[in-house]
Every structure is written in structure tokens, then in C-alpha cells.
């Protein structure tokens, strides 16, 4: 065994932490976990462009930084555009002989609001232009940093502070925006979904995405105990249930071809996932059935698209 790596079966995981302890993410934050794992997969030869949001705030409070790789944060909605400039800048300097050393990979990171709402235009532009970069969306399904306001990634029925459940409302009344499909519609070479509850699958996809020439997009579901109102120790288990219920399937899209990574012979009922979270606590049986029907339908559609492969992490 190499001293700087830990073996998990045939896999070797670096002991290096590029996202260090001392970050100020909430207790049980699966997004911090996802970032930590993604950084292990990326290694040191990267430049990270981070959107405003939870991860920026918890990782970079002056004069401290959790990052051990070059990292830049500027604004909320422009992450993919900043990454475009980083990529174009360093490629040009390399070509002109003014970039010393190896050319790093460019990685953009943003939350679900920074990706599917306010940052969507910049992301679409960068994907369309074909920049060589990996964009990772850490999706905790609402604007958690500002106090759990709904985004277009918030699931149907979830109560947030701006989609509260009440006498006249079930909470969020729209279905979660299908961001991976939007990314894939740009005909980019690599799109994947991941969840830190499946850590090796996540690290594989990040590594694959960043190694892919051209734009790659990885969408990571990140359980937020604070916003989802669940027990912190369940953060990994709830992510697993999101996958096992078919609510958040793990798949890749390469060259337009869907591939399911965790094949499930039978989906668990969505209630197993919903009941652990306070944000769904108000749902009626009828609404839960509506969610179940929708999940079944969407999963069947995905199965049709996918050439299912055996094995899971």
C-alpha cells in the first residue's frame, strides 16, 4: 500500500485533503463531504472557480482558507464565465510560452441556485462555447446559505422559507428542474449525476469529467441537514435513499448515451426517503402518491434511455 494513499478494494484514495478541516459548514453537511471527495479526485493540478454560496462562505472566511489548491471566488452567477476566462487565459499563455509548468485543469463549482437559476445563462454560454472545463453543481435543493429559500432545484412538495407549506399550499409546487438534461442538451461530451453517499462513484465521475476534453458537467446531490430538517447523522443514508428510491438516479451521459450506474431491481418507496426529512413532514398521502407516480414515470423514462449496466458502489 502506498503511504500517501488508502486502499479500498482495488481503489486507492489519496490521504491528501485539499479541502481542509476547519471549514465552517454545518454539522453533517454532505455538500462539504462532496467537495472534500471531489477535491481528492481532482488532485492538486487544478484551478477552482467557486460561485458565491454555502461552500464559498464556509471555506474562505478571511484570513483563513480551507483550500489547498488555487481557488477564486468572484460573484454568484458568473462562475462558468470566470472559468471560461481562466481556461482561455492559461491556454493562450501556454501557447505563447508564458505559462510556467504543467497546464492545470479548470473546475467550476456552484450550488443549485448558482447553477440552475442565476448562473444558468453563463453556464449555457460556457458549455456551448466548448471550453475545456468541468462544472460541478453541488445541489442541496434550495438557497441554504441565505436561509433555505426555494430554487428551481427544490423538489415538489418541499417546504422552504419561500415555498412554505400552509393551508393553501403543499410547499414547492413545481417539479425539480432537470439540470443534467439541460447540460446534456448542449451536446457536451460528459454529463453525470453523483452523490457523496456513493463516494467512489462520485470520485470516479469527477476524475472522468475533469479528464474529458471539452466541457463536462457533474451534478451532485448533497444532503443538507439544516435545510432539509433531518438528523445530521442521516446525511449519508438519506442520499443513499434518494438513489434507491429512484428520486435521484446515478447515471452518466456520454456522447448522448445514457448509462445507469446504480441499477436497482426494485425501487424503494419514496416515503422511506421523505419521512426522514422535516421539509416533507406536512405532505398528505395523496401528494406522496403524486410524487411516487412521478418518480416511477421519470425512472421508467430514464431506464428506456439507458443501457443499464450491472454493479453498484
Amino acid at each position: 500500500m502506498m503511504a500517501d494513499k488508502i486502499a479500498f478494494g482495488k481503489r486507492l484514495v489519496t490521504k491528501e485533503e485539499y479541502f481542509s478541516s476547519g471549514h465552517r459548514a454545518c454539522v453533517g453537511c454532505a455538500e462539504a463531504l462532496a467537495v472534500r471527495l471531489a477535491c481528492k479526485a481532482l488532485g492538486p493540478n487544478v484551478i477552482i472557480v467557486n460561485a458565491t454560496g454555502c461552500m464559498e462562505v464556509v471555506s474562505s472566511q478571511f484570513p483563513y482558507t480551507a483550500w489547498s489548491v488555487p481557488w477564486i471566488h468572484t460573484l454568484f452567477e458568473n462562475t462558468a464565465a470566470v472559468a471560461s476566462g481562466v481556461e482561455a487565459g492559461l491556454k493562450t499563455m501556454k501557447r505563447k510560452g508564458r505559462w510556467p509548468g504543467q497546464e492545470p485543469q479548470v473546475v467550476a463549482m456552484a450550488g443549485d441556485g448558482g447553477t440552475s437559476d442565476i448562473g444558468l445563462q453563463a453556464l449555457s454560454g460556457a458549455l456551448e462555447r466548448g471550453h475545456d472545463f468541468l462544472y460541478i453543481c453541488f445541489d442541496n435543493e434550495a438557497y441554504m446559505n441565505t436561509g433555505v429559500q426555494r430554487s428551481s432545484a427544490t423538489p415538489f412538495g418541499a417546504a422552504t422559507t419561500t415555498s412554505p407549506a400552509g393551508k393553501e399550499s403543499i410547499g414547492q409546487v413545481t417539479w425539480k428542474k432537470n439540470m443534467p438534461a439541460i447540460a446534456a442538451a448542449h451536446d457536451i461530451p460528459y454529463v453525470a449525476t453523483a452523490c457523496p453517499s456513493y463516494p467512489f462513484d462520485l470520485m470516479d465521475k469527477v476524475a472522468k469529467g475533469v479528464a474529458t476534453p471539452g466541457p463536462a458537467y457533474v451534478h451532485i446531490l448533497s444532503v443538507c441537514p439544516t435545510g432539509w430538517r433531518c438528523a445530521p447523522e442521516l446525511a449519508v443514508e438519506i442520499g443513499r435513499l434518494a438513489v434507491q428510491t429512484g428520486i435521484f438516479p446515478l447515471y452518466e451521459i456520454e456522447g448522448g448515451q445514457y448509462k445507469l450506474n446504480v441499477k436497482l431491481s426494485k425501487l424503494k418507496p419514496v416515503t422511506e426517503y421523505l419521512k426522514l426529512q422535516g421539509r416533507f413532514g406536512h405532505l398528505s398521502e395523496a401528494t406522496i402518491k403524486e410524487i411516487q407516480d412521478r418518480v416511477d414515470r421519470e425512472y421508467a423514462k430514464l431506464m428506456e434511455k439507458a443501457t443499464a449496466v450491472a454493479g453498484s458502489s
Binding site: E17, Y18, S20, S21, G22, H23, R24, V27, S59, S60, F62, P63, Y64, T65, A66, W67, S68, V69
Partner: peptide, 18 residues
């Protein structure tokens, strides 16, 4: 106002949150 010391967050101990 860059932060020049990589991983300096390690100086911030979060252990007393628990």
C-alpha cells in the same frame, strides 16, 4: 486581499461546536 497560506482554515478549530 488574497489568502496566501493554503489550508489555513486548519487553524480554526471547529471541535467546540459538538
Amino acid at each position: 486581499s488574497i489568502v496566501a497560506e493554503p489550508g489555513s482554515a486548519a487553524q480554526y478549530k471547529t471541535g467546540d461546536w459538538k
